[in-house]
C-alpha cells in the first residue's frame, strides 16, 4: 500500500516503513540508543531526501524513547536526576553543534566531514567496546572473577566539585564530568544527525560504572528530551519535518520498542555489551567501505535553491 508523503513529496510503501520502524524501535529500546544512525541510511535508501529523513525521524525517535522511558520507569530502571543533568549538558552541546554544522556547510565538503567522523567515531568506540567485551568474556570462560566496584573506590573525575547524590545509579559524583560528556554527545549528535545513545550508554557503563539496567532507561530519557526539542527546532528552522512519515515510523517504532525493552532486560550484561559493540562497529565499517570502495555511480544530483 503506497501513501504520499506531503513534505517529502513522494509516495512510499506503508508496510515497508512500518517494518523499518519496528526493527529500529526494537534495537533502540533494547540498547537505549536512538537508532538514528540506523534509520537515516534506511530512509535515504528509500529515496527520501537526507534532510527530511533526519528532521522527521527526530519525532519518531521521541515517540520510541517515550515508550522505552515509561517501560523502564515502571521497572524503576531510570535515574531521573542523572537524566536531567545529562539533558542540560546535551542541550547546550546541541545548540553549539548546530552552529558548527552550519559553519561547516558554508565551507563545503560537509558530506566528507560527516562520513569521516562516522568512521572514526564508530570505528574507535566500537573497537574499544568489542575489545573490552571480549576480554570480559575470555576471563569469564577461564573462571577468573573480575573485580567489582567497591564502595569508596572512584576514578578521579567523580571527585570533582559540585557533587550530587544519584540514588538510582548508586553514585555520589560530581556533575561536571556528566555535563561535559553530555555536551560532547549533544555536539556530535547535532553534527552527525544522531541521537548519541551509542556514545552515552558505553560512557555511563565504562567510565561511571553505572548498572546496565539504569543506564539504558536514563539514556533513553535524555534522548527523549533532546529529540522533542530537536523536532520543534527542525520544524521552526527548516520546515522539513514530515509528520506523515514520522507517524508511520512511530507506529512501527513503538511496536518494536515494546519487545525491545523486554529483550534488553533479559540480556546478560556481557552479551549486551558485546552486541552493542558489534552493532556500532558494523556501522563504522559500513561508512568506511563507502569511503574507500570505488563507487558504482560516481555522479550524484542535488537540487539546490528554491523551486519555481
Amino acid at each position: 500500500m503506497e501513501i504520499y508523503l506531503p513534505i517529502a513529496d513522494m509516495p512510499v510503501n506503508v508496510f515497508l516503513l512500518l517494518a523499518m520502524g519496528a526493527a529500529v524501535g526494537f534495537i533502540s529500546a533494547m540498547f537505549g540508543i536512538s537508532g538514528g544512525f540506523l534509520m537515516t541510511p534506511l530512509l535515504i535508501f528509500l529515496g527520501i531526501p537526507a534532510a527530511i529523513a533526519v528532521a522527521s525521524q527526530t519525532s519518531q525517535i521521541a515517540a520510541s524513547s517515550m515508550t522505552g522511558v515509561l517501560g523502564y520507569a515502571r521497572r524503576g530502571a531510570l535515574d531521573l536526576k542523572l537524566g536531567a543533568v545529562l539533558t542540560l549538558g546535551g542541550a547546550v552541546g546541541t545548540v553549539a553543534g548546530v552552529a558548527f554544522f552550519n559553519a561547516m556547510r558554508r565551507l563545503g565538503q560537509l558530506e566528507l566531514v560527516i562520513v569521516v567522523s562516522y568512521v572514526v567515531l564508530f570505528g574507535f568506540i566500537g573497537t574499544l567496546m568489542l575489545v573490552e567485551s571480549l576480554r570480559a568474556l575470555w576471563s569469564a570462560r577461564r573462571g577468573v572473577a573480575r573485580r567489582r566496584r567497591r564502595g569508596g573506590e572512584h576514578p578521579w573525575y567523580v571527585g570533582l566539585p559540585l557533587r550530587m547524590r544519584f540514588y538510582r545509579s548508586k553514585l555520589y559524583a560530581s556533575v561536571i564530568p556528566f555535563l561535559a560528556v553530555a555536551f560532547l554527545i549533544g555536539f556530535a549528535g547535532a553534527v552527525l544527525g544522531v541521537g548519541g545513545g551509542f556514545i552515552m550508554v558505553p560512557t555511563l557503563l565504562y567510565l561511571f560504572r553505572i548498572p546496565a539496567t539504569v543506564v539504558v532507561g536514563t539514556s533513553l530519557f535524555q534522548i527523549l528530551c533532546t529529540m522533542l526539542g530537536a523536532t520543534v527546532l527542525h520544524a521552526v528552522t527548516n520546515q522539513l519535518v514530515d509528520v506523515v512519515l514520522a507517524l508511520i515510523l512511530v507506529v512501527g517504532g513503538v511496536f518494536g520498542a515494546q519487545f525491545g525493552a523486554r529483550a534488553g532486560q533479559r540480556l546478560g550484561g556481557e552479551t549486551f555489551r558485546l552486541l552493542l559493540a558489534l552493532l556500532v562497529l558494523a556501522v563504522g565499517v559500513r561508512f568506511a567501505l563507502e569511503l574507500v570502495v570505488q563507487p558504482h555511480e560516481p555522479f550524484s544530483i542535488m537540487r539546490v535553491g528554491p523551486e519555481r
Binding site: 515508550t67 509528520v243 512511530v250
Partner: peptide, 21 residues
C-alpha cells in the same frame, strides 16, 4: 505556523509513545 506544527509533532510523539505503553 512552524511552531504550532513542531509542537503538534512533538505532542503526537509523546501521545503515541504513551498509548503504546
Amino acid at each position: 505556523q512552524p511552531l504550532v506544527y513542531g509542537l503538534a509533532a512533538a505532542a503526537l510523539s509523546l501521545l503515541f509513545g504513551w498509548t503504546a505503553t
